[in-house]
C-alpha cells in the first residue's frame, strides 16, 4: 500500500510555523524543503566525506597512470577502461563467474531462506531452539567463516574428506579444482546469507493478514496451492527487495572468495572485486584497479535497476 506524501496537503499549515528567516539574496527555500534538507543533512554529510570524496579520488585515479613508478600520475584518459574491457580474462572468466555466482548464490539462499521461514512460521515443539540454530551464521564474522570452511575442505586434514573417505568415497582436492572451489565459495555464501533471508521473510510472513488464509482454508485449498496462490503473492514485494539488495551485495563479494580460494586455481574462480583488488593492491596499478572497479559498479548499477524492474513486473503480473 502506498502512503500519501506528507508534503502536499499540509503546505498551508506548515508555512505558518516558519520562524527562521533566510538571507534574501538567494531563492528562498520553502519551509518544507528546509525540513527535508535538515532530515538528510547528517547522513548526506557523512556520505559526502567518507564515501563520495574517496570514490571521486578513485574515479580520478582511473583516468591516470597511478602507479608507484609514475609519481606524476600522468593523465591517460580512457586507456585503463579500454584495457579492462578488452581483457580476455575479464570477459571470459571474471564476468561470467561474477554473474554465475550472483545468480546461484542469491537464488539458492532465497529459496532456502523461504523454505526455512515457512518452517519457522508454524509452531512446533523446539521452534525457538531451531530458530536460534538457524540464525547462527549471522553471528559469525564472514572472514572467520571463510577460514573455517577452507579448513573443513582442506584436502589433507579437512573433516569433509575425512568423512567422505570413512564412507568409502574418494576425497577431493576441493579448492584446487575450478568447479569444486566455486561450489565451496557458493556454499559458504549461501550458509552466511540464508539466515538473513529467513529473518526478513519470517518477519514478512508474520505480518501478513489472516483473512486470505482463512478464505483459502474455507475453499479447501491444499498446502501447495495456499503457498502458490496466497502466501507468495502476498510476500512478493518483500521477496523482490530482499533479492535485489542481496544481488547487489553478491556482485561485489570479496572477502570470502579471497580467503577461500584467492581466485584460484589459476584465475578460474576470480570475481570482479578480486580482479580490481589484484590490480590495485598486488600489482600496485591503482589506476587500472580503479577503472575495473568503476566498470563493475556501473554494471551492477544497471543490472540492479533492470532486476528491480523485471521482478517488479513479475510481481504485478502474478497478482
Amino acid at each position: 500500500m502506498r502512503v500519501a506524501a506528507l508534503g502536499h496537503g499540509t503546505e498551508a499549515v506548515a508555512l505558518q510555523s516558519s520562524p527562521h528567516m533566510m538571507p534574501p539574496a538567494r531563492r528562498r527555500l520553502s519551509e518544507q524543503e528546509r525540513f527535508m534538507l535538515l532530515l538528510i543533512a547528517p547522513a548526506a554529510a557523512i556520505l559526502l566525506l567518507f564515501q563520495v570524496v574517496p570514490i571521486l579520488i578513485g574515479a580520478n585515479a582511473s583516468f591516470r597512470d597511478w602507479t608507484l613508478y609514475d609519481p606524476k600520475k600522468t593523465w591517460v584518459g580512457l586507456a585503463h577502461y579500454t584495457a579492462v574491457v578488452t581483457d580476455r580474462a575479464f570477459l571470459t572468466i571474471v564476468l561470467p563467474n561474477t554473474f554465475l555466482f550472483m545468480t546461484v548464490s542469491v537464488g539458492a539462499s532465497l529459496l532456502l531462506g523461504l523454505a526455512l521461514a515457512l518452517l519457522l512460521n508454524r509452531p512446533f515443539r523446539g521452534q525457538k531452539l531451531v530458530q536460534t540454530v538457524l540464525l547462527m551464521p549471522l553471528m559469525v564474522a564472514p572472514v572467520i567463516a571463510a577460514i573455517m570452511l577452507r579448513w573443513m575442505f582442506n584436502d589433507q586434514f579437512g573433516i569433509v574428506n575425512v568423512v567422505l573417505e570413512a564412507l568409502g568415497f574418494e576425497g577431493q582436492p576441493w579448492l584446487a579444482q575450478r568447479w569444486t572451489a566455486f561450489a565451496v565459495i557458493v556454499l559458504t555464501d549461501v550458509w552466511l546469507w540464508t539466515p538473513w533471508f529467513t529473518l526478513l521473510l519470517l518477519a514478512g510472513l508474520q505480518s501478513l493478514p489472516r483473512e486470505p488464509f482463512e478464505a483459502a482454508a474455507i475453499d479447501g485449498a491444499g498446502r501447495f496451492s495456499v503457498l502458490r496462490f496466497v502466501t507468495l503473492p502476498l510476500l512478493s514485494s518483500v521477496l523482490v527487495v530482499c533479492a535485489v539488495i542481496r544481488a547487489i551485495d553478491a556482485f561485489r563479494t570479496f572477502d570470502i572468495v579471497w580467503t577461500l580460494s584467492g581466485g584460484g586455481p589459476g584465475r578460474s574462480t576470480e570475481l570482479f572485486s578480486l580482479y580490481a583488488y589484484v590490480y590495485a593492491f598486488l600489482n600496485l596499478d591503482f589506476g587500472k584497479g580503479s577503472a575495473a572497479a568503476m566498470i563493475g559498479g556501473a554494471i551492477i548499477l544497471v543490472v540492479g535497476l533492470g532486476l528491480f524492474r523485471v521482478l517488479d513486473r513479475l510481481v504485478q503480473v502474478s497478482r
Binding site: I55, G58, F254, S273, A280, F281, A293, G296, G297, I300
Partner: peptide, 24 residues
C-alpha cells in the same frame, strides 16, 4: 535525488572505495 544518490552509492564496490578512504 536523495534516493538516486543512495541507490548509486550502494552499488559502488567496496574495493574502489576503501583504498582512497585510507588516503582520506
Amino acid at each position: 535525488a536523495w534516493f538516486g544518490t543512495i541507490y548509486v552509492f550502494r552499488c559502488v564496490p567496496y574495493i574502489s572505495w576503501v583504498l582512497p578512504l585510507y588516503f582520506v
